[in-house]
């Protein structure tokens, strides 16, 4: 059962990592506009000019 001695800390710290991630995303305002966020995924504004409007980048 010695395996527990490092498995428990690993499991708990993974959980804690998730919690820290949640608190960070909350603090940086990522839950302020849930309505807008789901549409921004579809927008191409962050791509360079030649890759916009649905054109696939050259492979």
């Amino acid at each position: 059962m010695e395996v527990l001695l490092y498995l428990i800390p690993v499991a708990v710290s993974l959980g804690a990592l998730g919690l820290v991630g949640f608190l960070w995303s909350l603090k940086s305002g990522q839950y302020d506009d849930l309505e807008g966020a789901k549409w921004r995924v579809l927008s191409d504004d962050d791509l360079p000019e030649d890759q916009q409007s649905g054109k696939m980048p050259d492979a």
């Binding site: 302020d32 506009d33 309505e35 807008g36 549409w39 921004r40 927008s43 504004d45």
Partner: peptide, 24 residues
């Protein structure tokens, strides 16, 4: 409308950030 507003304002000189909250 969100994209239109943000792009339209970004073209103005000196605008560093224009962000529309679609919820509020």
């Amino acid at each position: 409308c969100m994209g239109e507003i943000e792009r339209g304002l970004a073209q103005l000189p000196g605008v560093t950030r224009a962000r529309l909250n679609l919820t509020s």
